[in-house]
């Protein structure tokens, strides 16, 4: 049972990495990162349940961790997308191929 969930999360993680590596639209890259984060969250929850089944001290640690991941994701979206908009206003593009300078 655990392996099923781990397989799913592994595939999602791989998809996310593939998206980050192959896409050039920075927004799509952000979305792929969300996929990766979700795969991690899934693992946290699955292991949390496993922990519960073998009688760990707190069966909800994984879920609490997942909540923090969500917080990070929300913060990342707010700042990251703000950056994307600022970038778009200045450069008129959202392709990472065109944003290769550290300073302009």
């Amino acid at each position: 049972m655990l392996t099923t969930v781990l397989t799913i999360s592994g595939l999602m993680f791989a998809l996310g990495v593939a998206g980050v590596l192959t896409r050039r639209n920075i927004i799509v890259i952000f979305m792929a990162i969300e996929l990766i984060l979700n795969a991690a969250n899934l693992n946290f929850v699955a292991f949390s349940r496993y922990w519960a089944s073998i009688g760990g001290i707190s069966p909800h640690t994984g879920e609490v961790f997942a909540v923090f991941v969500m917080v990070v994701a929300a913060a990342e979206a707010a700042v990251g997308l703000g950056l994307v908009i600022a970038l778009y206003r200045n450069r008129g593009t959202v392709s990472v191929d065109d944003i290769d300078l550290l300073k302009w």
Binding site: L6, G10, L15, V17, G19, L21, T22
Partner: peptide
Amino acid sequence: AATVVVLVIGGSIVLGA
């Protein structure tokens, strides 16, 4: 590239699991 990435990373994770 995407396929390779999915296969390598996903495959290793799945096998590990």
